[in-house]
Design a protein around this nucleic acid. Sequence first.
RNA 1: GAGCCGCUAGCUCAGCUGGUAGAGCACCUGACUUUUAAUCAGGUGGUCGUGGGUUCGACCCCCGCGCGGCUCACCA
Length: 495
Amino acid sequence: MEQDINIVEKGRTIKLKKLKEKGINPFDNNFIKKENIKDIIEKYSSKDREFFENNIITVKTAGRIVIIRNFGKASFFRLRDGFEEIQCYIQKGVVKDSDFELFTEFIDAGDICWIEGHLFRTKTNELTIKVERTGVLTKSILPLPEKWHGLKDIEVRFRKRYVDLIANSEAREIFKKRAQTINFIRSFLNAGEFLEVETPIMQANPGGATARPFKTHHNALNLNLYMRIAPELFLKRLVVGGFDRVYEIGRNFRNEGISVKHNPEFTMLEFYMAYATYEDLMNFVEKMLSELAMHICGTFQINYASDKLDFTPPFKRIKLKDSLYEVARFKPEDIDSSLKLYDILSARNVSNISKNDSYGELLTLLFDEMVEPKLINPTFVTDYPVESSPLARRNDKNPEVVDRFELFIAGREIGNAFSELNDPFDQEERFKAQVETKIKEGLPVEMDDDYIEALKQGLPPTAGCGIGIDRIVMLLTNSYSIRDVILFPLLKPVK
RNA sequence: GAGCCGCUAGCUCAGCUGGUAGAGCACCUGACUUUUAAUCAGGUGGUCGUGGGUUCGACCCCCGCGCGGCUCACCA
């Protein structure tokens, strides 16, 4: 067993033992009243050398030692707490001999220590703590990754995210921005008088989207349940109940393929606004996302891969069919029949098409194929064919299309919104059709009779929107893969 | 699910047409009291993802398996 562990681990285990023998607890759990490094830097980063020569500023703090530069009778090291680091300097003669010995003989890079000392500026003018007292709080047994290259191995970064976060500041920044993004959105919605709610994740009848669900089971009730694929149907029940503006930021689960853009569990924002239309939501989303970009990145111009994304409002708005003319350069007469669409799609080897597909379905497929990848700047696409939108309200003037938009950025779908269908009889018809196709595909579905009943109770005119939080964070952090913005993406267990 | 690529020291990576495994960092020993990837000298550390095969000989060639990445498919 001992042969398996590396030499660093061996050495540190010995130090651990010796510390215990000396009566020093290497996992000291006593309360340490510490100042945060962030606060120290905020308070004193503007003070110059003379200030510290004339004022003795004593600070006590703690954190992980991330690097040590040893000079025999003195050492520099960097202490990190959260997102901030400060340089420290320990010198023989300044600290007690026992503290100096503790530091040089027993403390390693990676250990968590407390220090007390006073601030000064080095000859390169760096704000530094001259240590007067120190102690170990947590002995780290495993070595840190390489100090210059960090941890690169993608698999290890995902499996041992804690090491990734210690080693890679970019990773820390991504998840900080993720938290700030969610915070901003929450504040934005709260300021708009939205009520944050939580709806069931385990559902007996998963609805609101068309993906395959994960199965689970409740033992005591002997009840098969599914992990939700969307919160939509519950949120609208709440609008029926009088919560005119509700939102939920939460996890959805879809039992589908994994890709650079798909993780089996992912975070969605869904919000519903009564007495509003999808057009109102376009304005609302435009304001939210442009302000979000400014808040997180300090600019409307976001670099993403080789693209520049311009979040300056207003965002481009285009009807689905017009985008085929304008973006994909089709002439109206080229795409005016199902047959022509079918021929174009099959010539491009688009699979899963059938001659029985409706004009609207084929139009949407052609859009996915020819237009979506080209929508780089934020673009709202409207006037979706009714076939592709079972929960959306038909347009009053043109019943072929629904009152819906999708938002595309960087060639991918970021948001989906529509004026909600609130006619219970129309909804029932569409559910029936949906159930039939799902059963054909072998998917677990039942009519959601209670949802129909809710609509019979009366859903006010309402518009709702879903936005993929992970995908937004990808854009704002220039992350290529969704796994870079999910702390613990799903991986197969190692055997 | 298919194709391609990767897996070598704790970390980052070399390793040629097959000849028996290397560097830098980390670690250990020594020197060094203002460094910034500190520096200098010496040293420890490997079941080369895994199981088979070919061969006098395999990190290298062949087959299976595992995990990961990318592309496609599935899927919003």
